[in-house]
Each structure stands twice: as C-alpha cells, then as structure tokens.
C-alpha cells in the first residue's frame, strides 16, 4: 500500500517528507512500547503510536521503517518534525485512536 493511501484512509495530516508519499508499506506495527517494536518488527514499514518523544523516530530509523503515524490527534514538536524530515521519515497525525486507525488499515488490506 502506498503511504499516500495510508494518509487517505486515516484522514491524516502529513507533517514531514511529503515527497516520499509514493513509498510502499506492506504491513504495520501499532505500539507505544519501543522495546517491543525493536523486538518483534520484521518488515513492517509503518509504525502507529501514541508515544511522543524523539526515540520513536530513532526506533523507526533502526527498523528501516518509512512512516510514523501519531494517533489520537497528537502532533509532534517542531524539533521532532525537523528530526524526521532530516531522517527521511514520513510523519503524519490522525484523529483516530490506535484501535480504530489499525482497524481501518487492516480492513483496507494492509498486512493481509
């Protein structure tokens, strides 16, 4: 699924790296625990989280993830946005909860 389609499904506002919306993700991981992301993510290119600190971006970088979605309408600081922009990671924010955001993406075929 193209990252742009993720943004559409989640009615999300894209905050960084809007040039990379044509990137492809084949699955996603929803977690507020970065330790678990580091332990269990294999090839999921998309991270959904409600956690808000720069280690979210660094975790995504370590796992070669292309995109981070912040749920429940959370908007990262300008500092975090700059960090993601410089790291080539698409960041977006959606009004949906973690549960509903994951459900909408799964229903649309992501990870299936």
């Amino acid at each position: 699924m193209e990252v742009s389609r993720v943004a559409e499904i989640l009615e999300a506002q894209v905050l960084t790296c809007s040039d990379f919306l044509d990137g492809e993700v084949c699955s996603a991981c929803g977690s507020d625990m970065m330790s678990d992301v580091l332990a269990f993510v294999k090839h999921q290119g998309l991270l959904l989280t409600g956690l808000m600190n720069p280690q979210v971006i660094r975790t995504a970088m370590m796992m070669d993830m292309e995109c981070i979605v912040f749920v429940r309408g959370k908007v990262p600081s300008e500092e975090m946005q700059l960090f993601a922009e410089n790291s080539g990671i698409v960041m977006m924010t959606t009004k949906y909860s973690m549960f509903e955001a994951c459900g909408r993406l799964y229903e649309a075929g992501l990870g299936r």
Binding site: S35, D36, L38, A39, T49, N53, Q55, V56
Partner: peptide, 27 residues
C-alpha cells in the same frame, strides 16, 4: 529473561524498560 526489568516508571513512560533490551541484543 524477556520481561525482566529494573527500569524506573519514568523510563517506561518513554517507551522503554519492557525487559527486552538484553534479550534483543542477544537475539
């Protein structure tokens, strides 16, 4: 052991301290 952690609560609030660090490093 997975899940064993001595990290304080403020670290868990930052998304770490789930007791996966050393097991992950080994894996």
């Amino acid at each position: 052991q997975e899940g064993f952690s001595t990290a304080p609560d403020n670290i868990r609030a930052l998304g770490f301290g789930a007791g996966m660090g050393l097991p992950n490093m080994k894996n």
